[in-house]
Design a protein around this nucleic acid. Structure first.
Lengths: 193, 193
DNA sequence: GTTATTTTTGAACATTCATTCAAAAAAGAA
DNA sequence: TTCTTTTTTGAATGAATGTTCAAAAATAAC
């Protein structure tokens, strides 16, 4: 027997940054060997192929972001502040100059979603999971009287997801903090009363 | 002298459908020769290279969609109905099974925007042009008293563009008419009072 | 009708790609 | 240590890619 030398999480995080930067097709195996420090044979030994590395990177991305989201909403601050902070973080990401500008799940979904049903299903399920977490948060906020009952937890979570997708795309053409803040302000006004 | 045999608009529309379906990278020259009916040499003679064909297809797409948008907003119906119809069309596109599900400009912007500054600039300018048209329409609607003055023409146009981006992405994970209609209903309620 | 210019054709090109493979290295099991 | 199994290495492979090119065809101008 022999164990792998590399740190799997580290490798997956490097791979996901590579995929976020160039997308799946344009990220070559050469890019991936450079980003991960692994030779082609090691990648194929550990992840089967390039697509397998993508799938594993998606899993890691989802795990990392889910932890972050749950931690944020577990904090002991008013619900409105949680949403506000969440949107602030997204705006900051959109404005950052590194590759984290875009969400890996959405990037992959729009790029290869139509051609690879398995990838699309996995990514869709993960996004739906986040939407469900937001819906639960909205529901408890409504039950606690922190926000008005209209338009409801489900509708609010749906709309928030849609708006986040839109915000990230909008930032591609208008990477200006002022405009993005104006958009999130309109959004919070609608969802938080 | 000799004129080209093919119908340039027809070729560009076929090319843009090909690009919309698979994106830029995954659309091979073989796909393009099949879609356009042109041999490689003809494509290079007329458009210089694959990227040139993309740029020409983007121009054609923008021209087609701009004509459609202006015609819709030139109709003699209340402003609210124009917005409603516009969103209805987008929802219908999102639900259609052919490749027109996605907007070519947004698809290309998110795929190659970070790597090709010229393409990004062209696409961004075209999207901004559409946003400007919407803003003008909102402004006259406010001036005519058709909608309340808040939140203002510029903010409304920005938010609408963002929401359309988001709606198209959201449709990738939830291609269900009911949910999309719920989202557009929340949107029109906010923007049209 | 002849010439000049351009497009069309489709095979050929060089390059890049994801993938494979056999040998070498490493580590757990005996 | 010795054996066995797995990972690592990095060159090799074949397929697919975007692009080029020279000959052929076609049109416009004269």
């Amino acid at each position: 027997m022999r164990n792998a030398e590399f740190d799997r999480q580290q490798v997956l995080r490097n791979a996901m940054y590579a995929f976020m930067g160039k997308g799946y097709s344009k990220t070559s195996m050469q890019d991936l060997t450079r980003a991960t420090g692994l030779h082609p044979g090691s990648i194929y030994c550990a992840f089967e192929n390039k697509r397998g590395l993508l799938l594993a990177a998606i899993d890691q991305y989802h795990e990392d972001r889910t932890c972050h989201l749950l931690a944020l909403f577990a904090e002991d601050v008013p619900f409105k502040q949680k949403i506000q902070r969440y949107l602030d973080e997204i705006v900051a990401e959109c404005l950052s100059c590194d590759v984290s500008q875009s969400c890996l799940l959405v990037k992959i979904l729009t790029e290869v979603g139509e051609q690879d049903a398995d990838v699309a299903a996995k990514v869709s399920a993960y996004l739906q999971q986040w939407q469900q977490a937001l819906e639960t948060a909205f529901a408890t906020a409504i039950a606690d009287g922190e926000i008005p009952s209209a338009p409801g937890a489900q509708a609010s979570a749906q709309f928030l997801m849609m708006a986040i997708y839109g915000l990230r795309t909008y930032a591609h053409t208008h990477p200006h903090e002022q405009q993005l803040r104006q958009l999130t302000a309109m959004l919070t006004q609608q969802l938080l009363g």
